[in-house]
């Protein structure tokens, strides 16, 4: 207990050694040691074996789908999530509280439930799918279905990061801009948009990060055709089912590195958002 003394002098609060000790022990046991197994496993592979596992045609096609669909879904969420956040903060309409609570549904609804429901809705004879069918658009069992599922999953991230920033925004600035002769469009692009850009980007990165790793909601609607609609997490499972543990782990390492880069980006974006908010 004496090794890790709190730096602030004169503190009377007890339990530093116990609480930090337990925190680090539990973190190591549940998260750090198991995660390190992934990296250690890849060290048993030769570089060539690793490279061929992570760069086969089929896995490259899955990266393209996973990252491409995640990008499109996150971009859709920035547009529509931004509008939803704006409407929820600025306007009054009947049922607003209900709508506000409903935004968190994708967090609370188990992904498998979301998956089978979206598939039922967007298949040829589903409530939405049958209308799209007459327009010649197929969603279920195509890459478009992956985008739909990932949009559902990512929706709350953008809304919930932009909402507090809009609530804190100073309306006086907009009023000043308007009274100085700015048109509504100019006010939006010159005053409002710059203040919410960090939050929009954070929301985008959070939705993107969640979407790249998503599994449950996607596999039902995707159809899972190799080279066409097979996402990277599913490919890891396919490798595991073939008892190719090394191959599965190599792909997992690639995904983990991408996640860590995203996590770092998100932390930097959040620091930026806070600085922006603090400056005003």
């Amino acid at each position: 207990m004496n090794i890790l003394q709190p730096r602030a002098p004169g503190r009377v609060i007890p339990g530093f050694g116990l609480s930090l000790g337990f925190t680090i022990f539990y973190l190591a046991l549940i998260v750090l040691i198991p995660l390190s197994a992934v990296f250690l496993k890849t060290f048993t592979m030769s570089w060539d074996a690793f490279w061929s596992a992570v760069s086969s045609d089929r896995v490259v096609a899955s990266y393209k789908l996973s990252f491409g669909a995640s990008l499109i879904a996150a971009a859709l969420n920035v547009v529509f999530g931004g509008i939803v956040a704006w409407v929820l903060v600025r306007y009054k309409f009947p049922g607003k509280r209900f709508v506000d609570a409903l935004v968190d549904l994708p967090f609370a609804l188990p992904t498998a439930v979301a998956g089978i429901t979206l598939t039922a809705l967007y298949s040829n004879n589903g409530w939405i799918g049958k209308y799209l069918e007459t327009l010649g658009i197929k969603v279920a069992f195509t890459p478009l279905g992956v985008v739909v599922a990932l949009t559902f999953i990512g929706l709350p991230f953008v809304v919930r990061t932009v909402q507090p920033v809009l609530e804190e925004a100073e309306r006086e600035l907009e009023e000043a801009a308007a009274s100085l002769g700015a048109s509504p469009l100019q006010t939006f692009f010159r005053v409002i948009l710059p203040s919410i850009v960090p939050a929009l980007l954070t929301g985008f990165a959070l939705a993107f990060a969640r979407a790249t790793g998503e599994y449950g909601s996607v596999i039902f609607i995707a159809g899972n055709l190799p080279m066409v609609s097979e996402i990277t997490p599913l490919f890891i499972i396919t490798k595991l089912e073939q008892y190719d543990y090394a191959g599965a782990t190599a792909i997992a390492v690639v995904m983990l590195i991408v996640s860590f880069i995203l996590l770092l980006t998100i932390n930097l974006l959040q620091a930026w958002t806070r600085r922006r908010a603090g400056k005003k």
């Binding site: 709190p6 973190l27 998260v31």
Partner: peptide, 28 residues
């Protein structure tokens, strides 16, 4: 309740499971 070195690293590590794909969580 306390200040100590490496706090922000600890915070990031606690967040780690959020950014790991569920499939990889099973794989480990």
């Amino acid at each position: 309740k306390f200040d100590f070195k490496g706090k922000s690293v600890l915070l990031t590590l606690i967040d780690l499971p959020f950014s790991v794909s569920p499939v990889i969580a099973g794989l480990i």
